[in-house]
Design a protein around this nucleic acid. Structure first.
Lengths: 214, 214
DNA sequence: TGTCAATTCAAACGTTCGATTCAAACACCT
DNA sequence: AGGTGTTTGAATCGAACGTTTGAATTGACA
């Protein structure tokens, strides 16, 4: 299918850039193939259809992103019986800015695409995205339950959505040079938010979290 | 311009629904006018162009949303010299779910549109959106600085982006019947995140922040 | 060098798009 | 009723869309 690296990848790169800038439907195959210096028919030859190209652009990075997240999560959990919450959150957040494998704007662009995909009722795309994300989020939820025993799991699901939303929105809006600082701030912000729901839930004196009062 | 309520508003309603479901570019004027039981030419007559219709759909709710936010913010600030952080955050979050003025799905739909608009490099739309949001966010940042004196203002800007991203993402993804619980969780989550950056910044004993109530 | 499969190319297909036109229908005022 | 400005209707425009086709080109192996 995708034997040669040349045309096939040039199309993926051009499509990713244009999709991020203009959107899926607003970008024509003629724009993509022109930017990729490829023939118009090359898209349907290599990918079958425009919809399949969208999915290919999408999977190329998201698969790697979520794989990196889970690998880093395993690493964070391997240390001890009581994993560090901040390390878990870094496993969720930091790989997102490692998307910038070559061009420094790649991560920024892909976050825009990610936000579009979330916003789209594109069905095929939205379905595939939600399914894959659900698996990853379940893993992270389990890890956080270990790090913060007693946390309400329904609330945790929502809070994970908060974190993903904050990460996606902020990285899509901000320039990529701030990505590292954003990630650090988000980890701290999210850790405090998560801990707060535990300390409210378990007001018994032995709470190890949040004992900075007056 | 928009004297009669009938056709003009029917078009706006249909456009909002279709934009949320299909996206701006994927929705044709023919779909909109057919759903609105109006003539194709009515769109260009009433709004001038498709782009202007998008802006009109957008402004109709966003103006009201941000107005409600600022009104509730003023109310939260009027109470005392030391405003309550949770009340400020509620002023940011709660009006978003009050968008559901008639149909319960309206707010959910509009959040999808909002996310699309953020993701779009639509330029006119993105520019107008960012400008209007910047004004509101500046007001909220000032209020939070009063509620949490000593907070780092650059970090606060990022944290406000976290909150807006979490709100938009979560309300767009979840069904609207959970909106109230989501808002409550988000306020608590965000308040803890904001307070954490202050307590880290000012570890001197007299920190008045973070007094775990109840 | 000849062969064959993989890839690229130019050209065209039918469809749908946003926009425009002009006449008919409507509402409102004197 | 007659005149005026506003709104809708049906038809049509050129442009751009995604897709398809079949011939030209390439490159590896015999």
């Amino acid at each position: 299918m995708t034997a040669t690296p040349a045309t096939c990848d040039r199309i993926l790169d051009a499509a990713e850039r244009l999709f991020a800038e203009e959107g899926f439907h607003a970008t024509s195959l003629r724009q993509i193939t022109q930017a990729a210096e490829a023939n118009l028919a090359a898209v349907n030859y290599h990918f079958g259809s425009k919809q399949a190209l969208i999915l290919a652009v999408f999977r190329r990075r998201l698969d790697a992103l979520n794989e990196a997240r889970l690998a880093r999560l395993d690493q964070a959990l391997a240390g001890s019986d009581q994993p560090d919450l901040e390390e878990i959150l870094e496993a969720l957040v930091v790989p997102a800015l490692a998307l910038t494998h070559g061009n420094a704007d790649d991560g920024h662009r892909f976050m825009r695409i990610l936000m579009r995909a979330f916003a789209d009722r594109d069905d095929h795309l939205h379905r595939a995205l939600s399914a894959e994300y659900a698996h990853v989020m379940r893993r992270f939820a389990s890890a956080i339950v270990i790090a913060l025993p007693g946390i309400d799991e329904l609330k945790l699901r929502r809070q994970l959505d908060f974190i993903v939303g904050a990460l996606t929105h902020t990285m899509a809006e901000s320039c990529s040079k701030d990505a590292r600082a954003i990630a650090d701030d988000l980890v701290q912000f999210a850790a405090a938010g998560l801990r707060s729901s535990v300390s409210v839930q378990k007001p018994d004196g032995a709470s190890r979290t949040l004992e900075i009062h007056s």
